[in-house]
């Protein structure tokens, strides 16, 4: 049965070869086909929308802070007294326990241990978490793709060097390497001559996370390119006298593009989770900058007294990451129904 092309092409099997065949015969292209599959996956779309909604909410943080809560993310209201259900209540009780959700205006989701508005910090923290996640993903995907393609295309000592480097980074437990880099870099920042990054900068955290995940994407891409470079169409391109750069980015890249696309949501979700973990450990975002990770971390210190300080940022984080993951899973199913692309985690 597998030898019958008629069945293979119309069945669930979907390789770039078959897709090319389909295209030639006036069928639909692989990405159109994938988009059509994705459009049918309502669950994935709903979770994608959930993530988009969270992004929009976080982008609107200044509006919320200015017009509704009337307070900034780092403004402390330790001694303030507000009215809850008509009764005046301390924002922080005499023993330092913060007020819970008022479901109204300022302190909609309560206050934290320093009398700051949790809802405002949640949105600003989300901005930081998402920013770091997106920057880290960009770094990982860009460097991993370039290194994976260049290494596998040229083979030889360069490839040896690149894949040894992948092995090296891969050997470290993610969080250990993260805190090792975080703690040394934060102390004095990073100075690479051309550009300097301050120790407290969010970019530094993004850089660390982006670096740590490189082999998780680079290895599979390299593996795919190793197979691709032996294929006839690459030979044909070489024989036509096309330059290596043209071949790598004109011929090879489009053929690994679907793998790269599938990795984007995976890495984004993992970057956001890693940011939270590093911040919890004190090797990520630094106080008073909020991020979901630092907020959970702050909340855990007050845990028996004010569980809302853990639940609010934690659930927001889980929802955002869940949105990315389910949507990303849908994208993978659409592009690669036989699910050949995976990440260890």
């Amino acid at each position: 049965m597998s030898t019958d092309p008629a069945l293979a092409a119309t069945g669930t099997e979907f390789s770039s070869d078959v897709a090319r065949e389909l295209q030639k015969e006036g069928g639909i292209g692989p990405y159109r086909l994938a988009a059509r599959r994705l459009a049918r996956n309502k669950v994935a779309l709903a979770f994608g929308a959930l993530f988009a909604l969270i992004v929009v909410m976080c982008l609107l943080a200044p509006v919320y802070a200015h017009d509704i809560a009337h307070t900034g993310p780092n403004d402390e209201h330790i001694t303030q007294v507000i009215k809850v259900a008509g009764k005046p209540t301390d924002v922080l009780s005499p023993v330092g326990i913060p007020i819970g959700p008022t479901w109204h205006g300022r302190f909609f989701l309560g206050a934290d241990g320093s009398g700051r508005d949790v809802a405002v910090r949640l949105l600003y923290g989300g901005r930081n978490s998402l920013e770091i996640g997106i920057e880290a993903t960009f770094i990982t995907i860009l460097l991993a793709s370039i290194l994976g393609i260049v290494g596998a295309y040229f083979r030889g000592p360069l490839d040896g060097l690149i894949s040894r480097a992948f092995d090296l980074i891969w050997a470290y437990p993610v969080y250990l390497l993260g805190i090792a880099l975080g703690v040394t870099l934060q102390l004095q920042g990073l100075d690479l001559g051309v550009f300097k990054i301050k120790g407290s900068s969010l970019v530094l955290t993004a850089l660390i996370i982006g670096f740590v995940f490189i082999p998780y994407v680079g290895k599979p891409i390299r593996g795919q390119v190793l197979v691709l470079r032996e294929r006839e169409f690459i030979d044909a391109a070489r024989q036509q006298g096309l330059g290596s750069l043209r071949i790598m980015f004109g011929e090879v890249l489009p053929n690994v593009a679907s793998t790269i696309i599938v990795f984007i949501p995976l890495i984004l979700a993992n970057s956001i989770l890693t940011e939270a973990g590093l911040s919890y450990l004190g090797a990520g975002v630094q106080d008073p900058n909020p991020s979901w990770g630092t907020m959970i971390s702050d909340g855990i210190r007050l845990i028996p007294a004010a569980i809302h300080l853990v639940l609010v940022p934690g659930l927001m984080l889980v929802l955002a990451v869940l949105g990315i993951n389910v949507f990303g899973d849908g994208v993978r199913d659409a592009l690669d129904p036989r699910a050949r692309i995976r990440i260890e985690h």
Binding site: A269, L273, G277, I296, I300, I303, V310, L311, V318, N325
Partner: peptide
């Protein structure tokens, strides 16, 4: 499993410790 892979372990741990434990 989707929820599982989206859950930061320290958040899950803190919530478990609070409810199941405390």
């Amino acid at each position: 499993s989707m929820i599982g892979v989206s859950m930061p372990v320290f958040f899950l741990g803190a919530v478990l410790a609070y409810y199941v434990g405390d």
